[in-house]
Measured scan of single mutants.
Amino acid sequence: QWKVGDKCSAIWSEDGCIYPATIASIDFKRETCVVVYTGYGNREEQNLSDLLSPICE
């Protein structure tokens, strides 16, 4: 189960590419979260089910 502060990978809606991110907040009722893309600072809402394991850098 994901928690705030977890590192993950998420698909950015603008280009469909996968980027490393950190979970900033979680809404368990809606099963969504807000991620912050590492190195970019962009925030975006994602479905918890769409999150991927962190990418090894």
Rank of each mutant, 00 (worst) to 15 (best):
I18V: 11
I11H: 01
C8T: 00
S25Y: 09
I11P: 01
C33E: 00
E14M: 14
I18F: 10
C56W: 14
R30M: 12
V4R: 00
I55P: 08
I23P: 04
V34W: 10
C8P: 00
V35W: 07
L48S: 02
A24N: 05
G39V: 09
W12P: 00
Y40L: 15
K29C: 08
D6E: 03
I23N: 04
D15P: 01
V34K: 03
R30Q: 10
L48R: 03
G16Y: 08
W12F: 10
S25A: 08
R43P: 08
D27A: 00
Y19H: 04
L52T: 02
E44I: 02
L52Q: 01
L51C: 05
C17E: 13
I18Y: 14
T32V: 10
C8N: 00
Y19I: 04
S53R: 13
V34S: 05
Y40G: 07
K7G: 11
D27L: 05
E14I: 15
T22I: 14
G5P: 02
L52G: 01
E57S: 14
G41Y: 03
D15E: 01
G16Q: 03
T32M: 10
C17N: 15
P20M: 12
T38K: 02
W2F: 11
Q46N: 05
Y37V: 05
K3H: 13
S53I: 08
E57T: 15
C17P: 01
I26R: 00
V36C: 00
A24H: 13
E45M: 09
P20C: 15
P54Q: 04
P20S: 10
I55T: 09
Q1E: 12
A21G: 04
I23T: 03
D6H: 00
S53G: 11
E14V: 15
I18T: 02
S53V: 11
S49G: 09
Y37W: 05
A10R: 01
N47M: 08
C8E: 00
K7P: 11
S25M: 10
I23E: 01
L48P: 05
I55G: 12
R43Y: 14
P54Y: 09
V36I: 14
G39W: 14
D50N: 05
A10H: 03
D6M: 09
L52S: 02
S49N: 09
G41D: 06
E44T: 06
P20L: 12
L48N: 06
K3D: 14
G39T: 08
W12N: 10
V36W: 07
L51Y: 04
S9D: 04
S25W: 09
K29D: 13
D50K: 05
Y19L: 08
S53N: 09
D6Y: 06
I55V: 12
T22A: 02
Y19E: 04
I18M: 07
G16K: 05
S13F: 06
L51W: 06
V35I: 12
P20H: 10
K3I: 13
D6K: 00
G39C: 12
C8R: 00
D50E: 09
I26W: 00
D15F: 10
S53L: 15
K29M: 12
W2V: 15
S9L: 15
V35P: 02
D15C: 06
N47L: 11
V36Y: 05
K29H: 11
E57W: 13
K7R: 11
S9P: 03
E31C: 07
A21C: 15
Y40R: 15
D15K: 07
G16I: 09
S53Y: 11
I23V: 04
E44F: 08
K29R: 12
C17Y: 03
K3G: 14
A10G: 00
C56N: 13
L48Y: 04
S49I: 11
Q46W: 04
A10Q: 06
V34E: 10
S53P: 15
S49L: 09
E45K: 04
S53D: 14
V35H: 01
G39F: 13
T38G: 03
I55M: 14
Q46Y: 02
G41K: 03
P54E: 09
W2K: 15
S13M: 09
N42S: 12
E14F: 15
D6L: 08
T32S: 06
K29V: 14
V4D: 14
T38R: 03
Y19F: 07
Y40I: 12
I18N: 01
W2Y: 07
T32I: 10
V35E: 02
R30T: 12
K7F: 11
Q1G: 13
I11F: 07
E57D: 13
S9M: 15
T22D: 01
N47Y: 13
S49H: 08
C33L: 04
Y40T: 15
K7C: 13
K29E: 14
P20T: 08
R30P: 09
N47P: 07
G41S: 06
S25V: 10
C33V: 12
C8G: 00
A21P: 07
W2M: 14
S53H: 07
I18W: 07
E31D: 11
G5L: 02
R30L: 10
W2G: 15
E14N: 07
G41Q: 05
Q1H: 11
G39L: 09
T22K: 04
T22M: 07
G5W: 03
Y37R: 01
C33R: 00
Y19V: 02
L48A: 04
Q1S: 12
E31M: 14
R30F: 11
Y40K: 12
W12S: 13
G16R: 01
K3P: 15
V35Y: 03
V34M: 08
F28M: 12
C17M: 14
D50I: 08
E57Y: 12
L52F: 10
C17S: 01
R30S: 11
Y19N: 02
G39Q: 09
N42R: 14
K3Q: 14
D6N: 00
F28C: 05
Q46T: 04
E57Q: 10
P54K: 08
A24F: 14
C17D: 02
I11N: 05
Y37S: 04
Q1W: 09
T22R: 08
D50G: 06
E31R: 13
K29G: 10
K3W: 13
C56F: 14
E14A: 12
E57C: 13
N42H: 14
N47V: 04
S25E: 10
